[in-house]
Design a protein around this nucleic acid. Structure first.
Lengths: 216, 216
DNA sequence: GTCTATAAGTAGATAGAC
DNA sequence: GTCTATCTACTTATAGAC
């Protein structure tokens, strides 16, 4: 009698330990340098366990990303719906907040400090297979948010709004994944210890950038 | 009688072709997936040529980055000096411009469209060796620009300014390296064909974010 | 300077015992 | 479900001929 496996939940112990170990090592070293052997060693599992549970290394890597991105993107769309349901003109800061806050929340709540580094790594260094997964997981978010921003910034050319959306994604990814560098830059003046204050700083910066005047 | 080799200049044909091929393949595939074999094949050189000219794959990779980053960071510091030499209070937009414009200029002038992708890849996915090179090449830029920004934003907490510097680097890297994605997002509405207009959009966005009000 | 040939190591995947 | 042992493929680096 095996435990019924609910996709994305804790399910079997070994399976979950493999995901945790993979997330940690991919965050520390990158997808290519995190070998199946190092992952199974850290998870205290056998080398063959990856093939058994995920079919291949690629299957494991896909699930590492999918298990965090599913709740993050669900929260984003829920917050966007709430924001757009308010009466009056669309609230620019609310839209930015709906995009920026959920990943910080999930990383904080799930105690998943390594996932930010995993994310920025594949975002900028995707293999062909990861590119497909990312497109699949982000398509709805991209469409809904860029549409909302175009409505919220009616005086801006849509081409400018798409660029500003892209700028937002860039700051967000770099902050989630490389925020630890700021501690070095600044000699400890800035730090990532309080994720809430970092995400608030980010919301302020991005909202102001979004609201900048257009080309003269 | 061999051609005297000036570091960073065109020097020997094979050497330069190896650098160009490496830049292209690292941009397309990442450092780890770009093998020495694929690089020497594309450069129409022999497998052993990398060891001969650069000592190792790591030596080749380092020079791929150093040959573009040297002029980029030199231009940045020159533009910052000019900006700070102006009378009156430091010009925020001028500082942002000094950081943002040089990489776009060098990529455009050197016909090096792949270098942006190389850069964002190692920035977010550095091996231990690359981390050292990046620290070495960026230390002066980080110190000078963060200092100038703290002066230009006297009403802001330095911790906030360091974060905003980090946000700027994030948008810039993501735009230089992943700008081609915007063409997909936007269904062709936005594009990277005119680098000058992209860098101007970026300067506007970042300057507005830098100038945002602080915490209440 | 350029080449061939090969060394020495490590990757992911899997067959088959338990 | 878990394990050991092994296969095949590919990596970088290098010795030594030309």
């Amino acid at each position: 009698m095996t435990t019924p496996s609910i996709a994305g939940s804790e399910s079997h112990g070994t399976r979950r330990q493999l995901l945790d170990a993979a997330e940690q090592l991919i965050g520390e070293q990158g997808v290519d340098r995190a070998t199946v052997r190092s992952i199974t060693d850290l998870a205290a599992a056998n080398l063959a366990a990856v093939s058994y549970h995920f079919g291949s290394k690629d299957g494991l890597v896909r699930e590492v990303f999918a298990r965090r991105l599913r709740p993050i993107n669900r929260q984003r769309l829920e917050m966007l719906d709430q924001c757009l349901a308010q009466p009056g003109p669309p609230d620019l800061e609310g839209i930015v907040r709906a995009m920026v806050i959920p990943p910080f929340r999930v990383l904080s709540a799930d105690q998943a400090p390594n996932f930010g580094r995993c994310m920025v790594r594949v975002l900028s260094d995707p293999s062909q297979e990861m590119r497909e997964l990312l497109m699949e997981m982000f398509q709805e978010v991209i469409e809904r948010f860029s549409g909302a921003l175009i409505q919220a910034l009616p005086e801006q050319d849509p081409a400018e709004v798409f660029w500003r959306f892209h700028f937002m994604v860039g700051t967000m990814a770099h902050t989630l994944g490389m925020g630890h560098l700021v501690e070095e830059y600044s000699g400890g003046v800035s730090h990532m210890r309080d994720l809430d204050s970092v995400s608030e700083r980010l919301v302020r910066f991005v909202t102001a950038g979004m609201a900048a005047e257009g080309t003269g």
